[in-house]
Simulated scan of single mutants.
Amino acid sequence: MSFAIRPLLGILATVLLAGPAFANNNASVTSSLVVQQPKKEGRLWSGYINVGRSASLYDFKDGSRKDGMDYALRFNLKASDNYTVRIQGGYSQDLKYPESDDFSDTSVSVIRSPFEMGSTFLLGYRIGAVVPTSKDSHVRQNLTTSVSTALNVIVNPDRLITGFDVSGSISAARNIHQYETALDGRVNTQYSSNQSLSLSYSWESGVSLSADFLHRNTWSYQNVMRDSFEMSQELGYQFNPTWAFAVGHTNSGSTLKPNGSDSNVQFIDENNSLVYASMTVIF
Protein backbone atom coordinates (compact mmCIF):
# COMPACT_ATOMS: atom_id res chain seq x y z
CA MET A 1 0.00 0.00 0.00
CA SER A 2 1.15 3.57 -0.40
CA PHE A 3 0.91 7.01 1.06
CA ALA A 4 0.93 9.66 -1.65
CA ILE A 5 2.84 12.40 0.16
CA ARG A 6 4.31 15.65 -1.17
CA PRO A 7 6.86 16.62 -2.28
CA LEU A 8 7.20 14.14 -5.13
CA LEU A 9 10.91 13.46 -4.59
CA GLY A 10 10.06 12.22 -1.12
CA ILE A 11 7.94 9.57 -2.82
CA LEU A 12 10.46 8.75 -5.50
CA ALA A 13 13.20 7.86 -3.06
CA THR A 14 10.99 5.26 -1.40
CA VAL A 15 9.45 3.76 -4.55
CA LEU A 16 12.85 2.27 -5.32
CA LEU A 17 12.25 -0.30 -2.63
CA ALA A 18 8.55 -0.77 -3.21
CA GLY A 19 7.84 -4.44 -2.85
CA PRO A 20 5.68 -5.50 0.02
CA ALA A 21 6.89 -8.38 2.16
CA PHE A 22 4.42 -10.89 3.57
CA ALA A 23 5.48 -12.78 6.67
CA ASN A 24 2.29 -14.84 6.49
CA ASN A 25 -0.92 -14.94 4.53
CA ASN A 26 -2.66 -12.57 6.89
CA ALA A 27 -0.20 -9.75 6.42
CA SER A 28 -1.36 -6.56 4.81
CA VAL A 29 0.88 -4.73 2.40
CA THR A 30 3.56 -2.72 4.17
CA SER A 31 3.47 0.93 3.23
CA SER A 32 5.96 1.55 0.45
CA LEU A 33 5.48 5.23 -0.34
CA VAL A 34 5.61 6.75 3.12
CA VAL A 35 7.29 10.13 3.12
CA GLN A 36 11.04 9.95 3.71
CA GLN A 37 11.77 13.68 3.71
CA PRO A 38 13.95 14.61 6.72
CA LYS A 39 12.44 17.20 9.02
CA LYS A 40 15.67 19.20 8.89
CA GLU A 41 17.70 19.96 5.79
CA GLY A 42 20.70 17.68 5.49
CA ARG A 43 19.55 15.29 8.22
CA LEU A 44 21.66 12.12 8.32
CA TRP A 45 18.93 9.70 9.52
CA SER A 46 15.28 9.37 8.51
CA GLY A 47 12.66 6.63 8.45
CA TYR A 48 9.28 5.55 9.74
CA ILE A 49 7.38 3.16 11.99
CA ASN A 50 4.16 1.74 10.54
CA VAL A 51 1.42 -0.18 12.38
CA GLY A 52 -1.47 -1.72 10.43
CA ARG A 53 -4.52 -3.90 10.98
CA SER A 54 -5.92 -6.04 8.16
CA ALA A 55 -8.87 -8.42 7.81
CA SER A 56 -10.70 -10.32 5.07
CA LEU A 57 -13.19 -8.21 3.14
CA TYR A 58 -15.76 -11.03 3.35
CA ASP A 59 -16.60 -13.06 6.43
CA PHE A 60 -18.21 -16.37 5.49
CA LYS A 61 -18.67 -17.32 9.17
CA ASP A 62 -16.79 -20.58 8.56
CA GLY A 63 -13.56 -19.73 10.36
CA SER A 64 -11.67 -18.80 7.18
CA ARG A 65 -11.64 -15.04 7.85
CA LYS A 66 -8.12 -13.58 8.14
CA ASP A 67 -7.30 -11.06 10.86
CA GLY A 68 -3.84 -9.71 11.59
CA MET A 69 -1.55 -6.89 12.68
CA ASP A 70 1.59 -5.77 10.88
CA TYR A 71 4.50 -3.71 12.17
CA ALA A 72 7.20 -2.22 9.90
CA LEU A 73 10.35 -0.25 10.67
CA ARG A 74 12.59 1.52 8.16
CA PHE A 75 15.86 3.42 8.66
CA ASN A 76 17.54 5.54 5.97
CA LEU A 77 21.16 6.65 6.28
CA LYS A 78 22.22 9.42 3.91
CA ALA A 79 25.58 8.25 2.60
CA SER A 80 25.99 11.17 0.15
CA ASP A 81 23.91 13.66 -1.81
CA ASN A 82 22.93 10.91 -4.27
CA TYR A 83 23.05 7.64 -2.31
CA THR A 84 21.14 6.32 0.69
CA VAL A 85 21.59 3.12 2.69
CA ARG A 86 18.30 1.59 3.83
CA ILE A 87 17.45 -1.11 6.37
CA GLN A 88 13.88 -2.38 6.64
CA GLY A 89 12.18 -5.12 8.64
CA GLY A 90 8.87 -6.01 10.19
CA TYR A 91 6.71 -8.38 12.17
CA SER A 92 3.30 -9.90 11.38
CA GLN A 93 0.87 -11.02 14.05
CA ASP A 94 -1.93 -13.48 13.27
CA LEU A 95 -4.76 -12.62 15.67
CA LYS A 96 -6.50 -15.97 15.10
CA TYR A 97 -3.55 -18.35 15.00
CA PRO A 98 -0.64 -17.06 17.12
CA GLU A 99 1.59 -19.92 15.97
CA SER A 100 1.71 -18.19 12.57
CA ASP A 101 3.27 -15.00 13.98
CA ASP A 102 6.56 -14.27 12.26
CA PHE A 103 9.16 -11.65 11.49
CA SER A 104 9.58 -10.57 7.90
CA ASP A 105 12.93 -10.86 6.18
CA THR A 106 15.24 -7.88 6.73
CA SER A 107 16.41 -5.99 3.65
CA VAL A 108 19.56 -3.91 3.27
CA SER A 109 19.80 -1.70 0.18
CA VAL A 110 21.80 1.06 -1.45
CA ILE A 111 19.56 3.51 -3.32
CA ARG A 112 20.46 6.03 -6.00
CA SER A 113 18.35 9.20 -5.84
CA PRO A 114 16.25 9.86 -8.97
CA PHE A 115 17.95 11.87 -11.71
CA GLU A 116 16.60 13.43 -14.88
CA MET A 117 16.58 11.40 -18.08
CA GLY A 118 15.49 13.88 -20.71
CA SER A 119 12.64 16.22 -19.95
CA THR A 120 9.92 13.60 -19.39
CA PHE A 121 11.33 10.99 -17.02
CA LEU A 122 13.33 10.59 -13.85
CA LEU A 123 15.34 7.42 -13.24
CA GLY A 124 16.55 5.78 -10.05
CA TYR A 125 17.94 2.40 -9.10
CA ARG A 126 18.87 0.28 -6.12
CA ILE A 127 20.83 -2.83 -5.24
CA GLY A 128 20.06 -4.88 -2.17
CA ALA A 129 20.32 -8.08 -0.19
CA VAL A 130 18.08 -9.93 2.26
CA VAL A 131 18.85 -11.29 5.71
CA PRO A 132 16.47 -14.30 6.22
CA THR A 133 14.98 -13.35 9.59
CA SER A 134 11.58 -14.99 8.99
CA LYS A 135 10.91 -18.58 10.03
CA ASP A 136 9.49 -19.29 6.60
CA SER A 137 12.79 -18.31 4.95
CA HIS A 138 15.49 -19.61 7.27
CA VAL A 139 13.65 -22.66 8.66
CA ARG A 140 11.29 -23.93 5.95
CA GLN A 141 13.14 -22.75 2.83
CA ASN A 142 16.71 -22.80 4.24
CA LEU A 143 17.33 -19.45 2.54
CA THR A 144 20.88 -18.13 2.85
CA THR A 145 20.30 -14.73 1.26
CA SER A 146 18.75 -13.00 -1.72
CA VAL A 147 20.35 -10.34 -3.92
CA SER A 148 18.34 -7.98 -6.11
CA THR A 149 18.42 -4.89 -8.27
CA ALA A 150 15.65 -2.55 -9.43
CA LEU A 151 15.14 0.28 -11.89
CA ASN A 152 12.50 2.94 -11.37
CA VAL A 153 11.00 5.21 -14.01
CA ILE A 154 9.09 8.28 -12.84
CA VAL A 155 7.13 10.70 -14.98
CA ASN A 156 8.50 14.19 -14.45
CA PRO A 157 5.94 16.05 -12.29
CA ASP A 158 6.33 19.09 -14.55
CA ARG A 159 4.64 17.02 -17.27
CA LEU A 160 1.61 16.22 -15.11
CA ILE A 161 -1.14 18.17 -13.42
CA THR A 162 -0.27 19.36 -9.93
CA GLY A 163 -0.68 16.61 -7.35
CA PHE A 164 -0.71 13.71 -9.82
CA ASP A 165 2.21 11.24 -9.62
CA VAL A 166 3.01 8.29 -11.92
CA SER A 167 5.88 5.82 -11.51
CA GLY A 168 6.81 2.30 -12.53
CA SER A 169 9.56 -0.15 -11.68
CA ILE A 170 11.10 -3.42 -12.71
CA SER A 171 13.26 -5.58 -10.46
CA ALA A 172 15.15 -8.87 -10.58
CA ALA A 173 16.26 -11.07 -7.66
CA ARG A 174 18.33 -14.21 -7.16
CA ASN A 175 17.65 -16.38 -4.11
CA ILE A 176 20.42 -18.51 -2.64
CA HIS A 177 19.29 -21.56 -0.64
CA GLN A 178 21.16 -24.32 1.13
CA TYR A 179 18.92 -26.85 -0.62
CA GLU A 180 16.80 -26.69 -3.76
CA THR A 181 13.83 -28.24 -1.90
CA ALA A 182 12.13 -26.81 1.20
CA LEU A 183 11.35 -28.85 4.33
CA ASP A 184 7.75 -29.39 3.21
CA GLY A 185 8.87 -30.84 -0.13
CA ARG A 186 8.13 -27.83 -2.29
CA VAL A 187 10.85 -26.69 -4.71
CA ASN A 188 12.32 -23.34 -3.70
CA THR A 189 12.23 -20.24 -5.90
CA GLN A 190 15.58 -19.42 -7.52
CA TYR A 191 14.77 -16.27 -9.54
CA SER A 192 12.03 -13.65 -9.43
CA SER A 193 11.10 -10.45 -11.23
CA ASN A 194 8.58 -7.73 -10.27
CA GLN A 195 6.98 -5.16 -12.55
CA SER A 196 4.89 -2.46 -10.89
CA LEU A 197 2.87 0.66 -11.67
CA SER A 198 1.83 3.30 -9.12
CA LEU A 199 -0.63 6.17 -9.54
CA SER A 200 -1.50 8.75 -6.91
CA TYR A 201 -3.20 12.11 -6.53
CA SER A 202 -2.69 14.43 -3.58
CA TRP A 203 -4.57 17.50 -2.42
CA GLU A 204 -3.03 20.38 -0.50
CA SER A 205 -5.23 19.45 2.46
CA GLY A 206 -3.15 16.30 2.99
CA VAL A 207 -5.74 13.89 1.54
CA SER A 208 -4.48 11.47 -1.12
CA LEU A 209 -5.78 8.68 -3.33
CA SER A 210 -3.48 6.00 -4.74
CA ALA A 211 -3.55 2.75 -6.68
CA ASP A 212 -0.75 0.23 -7.15
CA PHE A 213 -0.44 -2.85 -9.33
CA LEU A 214 2.40 -5.38 -9.20
CA HIS A 215 3.04 -8.41 -11.41
CA ARG A 216 5.54 -11.03 -10.24
CA ASN A 217 7.29 -13.83 -12.14
CA THR A 218 9.12 -16.59 -10.28
CA TRP A 219 11.27 -19.49 -11.49
CA SER A 220 12.00 -22.52 -9.33
CA TYR A 221 15.24 -24.53 -9.28
CA GLN A 222 13.47 -26.92 -11.66
CA ASN A 223 12.82 -23.97 -14.01
CA VAL A 224 9.05 -24.00 -13.40
CA MET A 225 7.70 -20.49 -13.98
CA ARG A 226 4.76 -19.04 -12.04
CA ASP A 227 3.28 -15.57 -12.01
CA SER A 228 1.10 -13.70 -9.57
CA PHE A 229 -0.27 -10.22 -8.95
CA GLU A 230 -0.89 -7.78 -6.12
CA MET A 231 -3.04 -4.67 -6.29
CA SER A 232 -4.14 -2.08 -3.77
CA GLN A 233 -6.23 1.06 -3.57
CA GLU A 234 -5.83 3.52 -0.73
CA LEU A 235 -7.21 6.69 0.83
CA GLY A 236 -4.58 8.47 2.93
CA TYR A 237 -4.31 11.55 5.07
CA GLN A 238 -1.14 13.24 6.33
CA PHE A 239 -1.88 15.16 9.51
CA ASN A 240 1.54 16.81 9.64
CA PRO A 241 5.17 15.97 8.75
CA THR A 242 5.20 13.31 11.48
CA TRP A 243 1.86 11.48 11.37
CA ALA A 244 -0.02 9.81 8.48
CA PHE A 245 -3.12 7.57 8.39
CA ALA A 246 -4.52 5.36 5.62
CA VAL A 247 -7.33 2.92 4.86
CA GLY A 248 -7.49 0.71 1.82
CA HIS A 249 -8.13 -2.56 0.04
CA THR A 250 -5.64 -5.08 -1.33
CA ASN A 251 -6.02 -8.23 -3.37
CA SER A 252 -3.45 -10.77 -4.56
CA GLY A 253 -3.26 -14.20 -6.14
CA SER A 254 -2.24 -16.17 -9.19
CA THR A 255 -2.45 -14.27 -12.48
CA LEU A 256 -4.17 -17.22 -14.20
CA LYS A 257 -7.05 -19.42 -13.11
CA PRO A 258 -6.45 -23.17 -12.53
CA ASN A 259 -7.21 -23.91 -16.20
CA GLY A 260 -3.99 -22.05 -17.08
CA SER A 261 -5.54 -19.78 -19.72
CA ASP A 262 -8.21 -17.49 -18.20
CA SER A 263 -7.14 -14.38 -16.31
CA ASN A 264 -7.56 -14.44 -12.53
CA VAL A 265 -6.80 -10.72 -12.10
CA GLN A 266 -9.84 -9.02 -10.60
CA PHE A 267 -10.50 -5.88 -8.61
CA ILE A 268 -12.22 -7.71 -5.74
CA ASP A 269 -11.86 -11.39 -4.87
CA GLU A 270 -14.22 -12.63 -2.18
CA ASN A 271 -11.66 -15.23 -1.11
CA ASN A 272 -8.51 -13.09 -1.06
CA SER A 273 -9.45 -9.42 -0.69
CA LEU A 274 -8.27 -7.69 2.49
CA VAL A 275 -9.19 -4.31 3.95
CA TYR A 276 -6.73 -2.48 6.17
CA ALA A 277 -6.06 0.62 8.23
CA SER A 278 -2.62 1.86 9.24
CA MET A 279 -0.87 4.64 11.12
CA THR A 280 2.65 5.81 10.34
CA VAL A 281 5.10 7.84 12.43
CA ILE A 282 7.71 9.53 10.25
CA PHE A 283 11.04 10.74 11.60
Rank of each mutant, 00 (worst) to 15 (best):
M1N: 08
A4N: 13
R6G: 09
L12M: 14
T14P: 07
A18R: 13
P20Y: 06
A21F: 03
A23N: 07
A27F: 05
V29K: 10
K39L: 14
K40L: 12
E41F: 11
W45R: 05
V51Q: 11
V51E: 08
V51A: 14
G52A: 14
S56I: 04
Y58W: 11
F60Y: 13
G63P: 02
S64T: 15
R65A: 15
D67R: 14
R74G: 05
S80R: 02
Y83G: 01
V85T: 04
Q88W: 07
Y91T: 01
Q93R: 13
Y97R: 13
P98F: 10
D101G: 04
D102W: 02
S109A: 15
S113L: 07
P114H: 07
F115K: 08
M117V: 14
S119N: 13
T120A: 12
T120K: 11
G128D: 01
V131C: 02
T133E: 00
T133K: 01
K135D: 05
D136I: 12
T144K: 15
T144D: 15
T144W: 10
T145L: 09
S146I: 05
V147F: 05
V147E: 02
S148F: 14
N152D: 12
I154Q: 09
D158C: 03
I161S: 10
S167F: 08
R174Y: 12
T181S: 06
T181V: 13
D184L: 03
V187E: 11
Y191I: 02
L197Y: 04
Y201M: 00
E204Y: 04
G206K: 00
S210F: 03
A211F: 11
D212M: 08
F213P: 01
L214V: 14
L214Y: 07
H215L: 09
H215M: 06
R216L: 14
T218I: 11
S220H: 08
V224T: 13
E230G: 14
N240I: 06
P241C: 07
A244F: 11
F245I: 14
V247D: 04
V247H: 07
G248K: 05
G248H: 06
H249N: 10
T250H: 12
S252M: 11
P258H: 12
E270G: 08
S273C: 00
S278T: 08
M279L: 07
I282E: 00
